[in-house]
Write a protein that binds this DNA or RNA. Structure first.
Lengths: 187, 187
DNA sequence: CTTATTTTTTTACAAATGATAAAAAAAGCA
DNA sequence: TGCTTTTTTTATCATTTGTAAAAAAATAAG
């Protein structure tokens, strides 16, 4: 997915504002295994995924929880660094060789203050991420792990082929053993 | 908490932009039990809580999950209606007689397009809500119900006095029976 | 004050999940 | 291919949580 599509999906900017924004974006490629965003670090950049897949996770003591998977068109970002300039809590690791667009938060913040279109684009970006997070949160409160797994199978079958089950289990908030049982039971 | 404080906590507007925004806000008072925001409805307004307490919850089949509690200074809103103009999934009910500030989404949207300061204020509002939601989500994935209850006791002791335990239990994602067991065990 | 209603706690039992260990299957590599 | 490593599945047992129903406590109403 190219940068124009990605930006347009958030909010339709005028040609002029879009060029201003794009002049701050460059493409970078990274290999599988690279950790784009590190927990405990103040991240300076925002990444849009052109191609590939990534996984955001939080480590604590001896266990690790997958917060979400990021695929084409989505944004890899430490939300806490982006919003508050503070250390983030999550790691984001590439699960495949990936192509990304990089944008320095600092430049974006400057654009926010001087261009009303870009400010609204930034507003829409936050709002979209908010709705996604809220939906995931509510779904997690309501559905059982089995239901959420089936939902994932239906909405995102490719993901399950591309990502190992241990990560899916931790995304669903269960152990890998439990996920195996679920998989056995729904056949 | 008055409207100036509430607006300032989100983002410091210039005097001029703030007046523009405030001219669209009016105070309204409602009694305990009033349902401010209704699931399945396209909500047209945003409410800031001046005084009182509210509870956002989602109903599904025969059970009901409390998404969050809203107190002084916080915003009662159907995020889905606000962001996408679609039907929301949550109800928001007042648990006490409350004083609120009301702002019509439609007017706010107009201001977003014409005033870069207000657009950035709106961006910050979404970003703050996003960080709050994300933190709650991650905390829910990591901590046990007991840990989250103890956390709530410490950070928000008044809440537990003001709100009945069935609601707290559903907020923690457990049954009231389990919460009773937890309360007995930590004495 | 007494009675009715709501809320909270307790109990017993059943079902789901986690921890652990080990086996089986799949993937990666020389 | 054959070997090693990683990933997935299976089995067992202990723990947690939910359901349902009853008891106790707190609140509201007459």
């Amino acid at each position: 997915m190219n940068i124009d599509q990605i930006l347009d999906n958030i909010w339709k900017l005028s040609a002029e504002s879009k060029e201003k924004l794009k002049s701050n974006i460059e493409q970078v490629n990274f290999s599988k295994g690279v950790v784009l965003v590190k927990a405990g670090k103040i991240e300076k950049d925002v990444y849009f995924m052109k191609k590939g897949i990534a996984r955001a996770y939080v480590e604590q003591e001896n266990n690790e929880v997958t917060i979400c998977f990021l695929t084409e068109g989505e944004t890899a970002i430490s939300m806490r660094s982006y919003v508050s300039g503070k250390k983030g809590y999550e790691n984001i690791e590439l699960l495949e060789n990936s192509e990304l667009y990089r944008l320095a938060t600092h430049n974006l913040q400057k654009l926010f203050l001087e261009d009303v279109q870009i400010a609204n684009w930034g507003r829409k970006f936050a709002e979209q991420e908010l709705i996604k997070t809220e939906e995931r949160f509510i779904s997690g409160q309501f559905r059982t792990a089995t239901e959420r797994y089936v939902e994932l199978l239906q909405n995102n079958p490719r993901l399950i082929q591309r990502v190992q089950l241990g990560y899916i289990a931790s995304y669903l908030g269960i152990t890998q053993v439990t996920l195996s049982r679920i998989r056995a039971s729904i056949k």
